[in-house]
Design a protein around this nucleic acid. Sequence first.
DNA 1: ATAATAGGCAACCAAGTGGTTGCATGTCAA
DNA 2: TTGACATGCAACCACTTGGTTGCCTATTAT
Lengths: 104, 104
Amino acid sequence: MDEVFKALADASRRSLLDRLHARNGQSLNELCEDLAMTRQAVTKHLVILEEANLVTTIKHGREKLHYLNPTPIHQIGERWIRKFERGKLAALSELKRQLEKRDE
Amino acid sequence: MDEVFKALADASRRSLLDRLHARNGQSLNELCEDLAMTRQAVTKHLVILEEANLVTTIKHGREKLHYLNPTPIHQIGERWIRKFERGKLAALSELKRQLEKRDE
DNA sequence: ATAATAGGCAACCAAGTGGTTGCATGTCAA
DNA sequence: TTGACATGCAACCACTTGGTTGCCTATTAT
């Protein structure tokens, strides 16, 4: 779980996920196109995404194809984010309530 | 948006958000209890959470009270995570399809 | 008034991160 | 078979990060 959060913390990596979301199964060189980074930098990002299980790769000849795995993202949504969605407005009114309580 | 992802990338900070989710409006010292960190380290984490707009503070006498703001978390859920939830299973079948296509 | 309490500020440090360059390896095409 | 292409590996670098210690300020309680 921590690995997923850390992997998502970098804008370049999120953009790589976006690219795979737009077109799945791209090779390393395809993913490098129009990016202001060397191929090696992209490789490092992809390794981090793989270790977080966000990307799966398959070697196909001399190419390495990258596939998006949205499951960890989904899990973060389910297990973590939903928890904080409940009582969003309730929080504000509780703020007021607690402030008044402290002044008693 | 980037600040929010970066703020959430650290387990200590997520645990601070959990604590505030359990009981809102805690002071700095309360948030430090039973944590294997100095007060100053916790302060630094809280500053990052404030800058990401995940936590709001109100000074109350000599205490500084911390309140959770779940809005940015909710936005990440809405604007970013939901995007990847569609077609989770579709991705697997498309993987197969594209592999076959490449072999033609 | 003064001591204790809550917090702020700044310097410092080790380890991690994002990036580079240079070179090596494996695979395809002419 | 040989050159071009796709990727891998390793060393190196600057900057960031998460943490510390030491000291200062402001507020409260006795």
